[in-house]
């Protein structure tokens, strides 16, 4: 479950970036060679946002062919 560790970091990074704004979507780019499973990432995201400023946000994963594992952007209000 290394996806859990990745999502913990992601949640604190996003929380630090958005300030007071409400986060609706977090968009990631995940390559097929990236050694992280989109399903496990989604699951871990749900676990990690619980009780944080990101609670209720959706994780949108754009699958790519390379080895990228990047936080691209967030949609906020």
């Amino acid at each position: 479950m290394h996806e859990l560790a990745l999502m913990e970091d992601l949640v604190s990074t996003v929380a630090g970036e958005v300030g007071e704004a409400r986060v609706h979507v977090v968009r990631l780019e995940v390559g097929r060679q990236a050694c992280a499973s989109p399903d496990a990432l989604r699951f871990s995201f749900e676990v990690c946002v619980h009780g944080t400023a990101l609670e209720g946000a959706t994780l949108d994963i754009v699958e790519t062919r390379g080895a990228e594992l990047r936080l691209k952007e967030v949609e906020v209000t």
């Binding site: 990074t13 992280a36 594992l69 990047r70 936080l71 691209k72 967030v74 949609e75």
Partner: peptide, 9 residues
């Protein structure tokens, strides 16, 4: 609003 962050996980 969309905020671009672009950060390696």
């Amino acid at each position: 609003r969309t905020l671009r962050i672009e950060r390696d996980l």
